[in-house]
Nucleic acid binder design. Structure first.
Lengths: 169, 169
DNA sequence: CTGGTCATGTAACCAGTTACATGATTAC
DNA sequence: GTAATCATGTAACTGGTTACATGACCAG
């Protein structure tokens, strides 16, 4: 009704997959799956049941080109982003509306209801959270620019938490 | 296999609903639905198709008590949190593991792939995001403590964005 | 020749979504 | 009496999840 662009917009996972291929160059579905499995977010599990159907979808929409890659001798299909794929990707990234959506933040959600915990338990919880935010959880095989972003993100998160708690007196 | 507690853990929406009832006191499913419809997060739409089945689930698990409230004369069922519900709620809030999960952050995801945008478009995007983060989007009927949290959250977000961009040189 | 990794997939399930439907009550 | 809101639901769909299955290839 209000989307004059192509059919429907990419999901977050679809966009991220497309972006990964755009950056890394042609790769197999398996390689993509493995990259997401190693991501620091528990939100994307990189499960086969998500990735393979997703690839099929993107292919069907003409956003991915698959050529049968006889790299050693094993049959595998190597995926690359198409022209249309790049356009769709740019639209997905540059979508400021979606970018500024609040998203899904389990810490924020819980902070909202902190007062429902008895004080002792609340303190234990906050200490625990603080410890975990301090831990430099950095999976080895993360994409190159993840670590920096992740680090800055964690810092921001600690600052936010502190600020919120301080202002609450 | 590793959860000695009761059956299964609450989803984020289930936890938030339980918490809302705990804070507000007994209310109808409709009232809950309306509260979530007005939330600043596009993530929770407060759709009937989500809320009503969810209520049934919580009731069936004994976390909610429903009494038929003949308030005027209209038949409606007024929901209140049970003893077991309070316990489950506390466990859900105090779950530091889930609280420190990265969650689902459309801005973070896109920042990761900023370099894939042509410079001009990147600049437009970032300006647009900045504007939107400045806008004091404050729905009228938010729960009392949302506004403050939301404000601090937006501030933190702007700081993070700036820090990330600065450090990128 | 055996176990790990590459590679691709499917089936059953789950918790959401949109869209629709129904009816009672209330405000004007 | 009529339109908005209160109140509750259902049906069809979607994009994930876990768990399972299959087979080729490679290193020891």
């Amino acid at each position: 009704m209000k989307l004059p662009s192509s059919g429907k917009q990419l999901t977050e996972l679809e966009g991220a997959v497309l972006a990964t291929i755009a950056r890394r160059g042609a790769m197999t579905a398996y390689a993509i799956k493995e990259m997401f499995r190693g991501s620091p977010s528990g939100f994307w599990s990189g499960s086969a049941g998500a990735v393979y159907p997703l690839i099929k979808r993107l292919e069907a929409r003409g956003l991915l080109d698959a050529q049968a890659g006889a790299d050693g001798k094993r049959a595998k299909s190597v995926l690359d982003i198409s022209k249309a794929g790049r356009a769709a990707l740019a639209d997905w990234i540059a979508d400021a509306g979606r970018a500024t959506d609040m998203g899904y933040d389990p810490l924020r959600t819980r902070m909202q209801f902190l007062d429902l915990l008895p004080p002792a338990r609340r303190k234990r919880f906050l200490d625990d959270v603080d410890d975990r935010l301090m831990a430099p959880v950095m999976p080895d095989e993360a994409p190159e620019n993840w670590p920096r972003l992740h680090k800055v993100w964690l810092e921001g998160r600690r600052n936010w938490l502190r600020r919120f708690l301080d202002r609450g007196k």
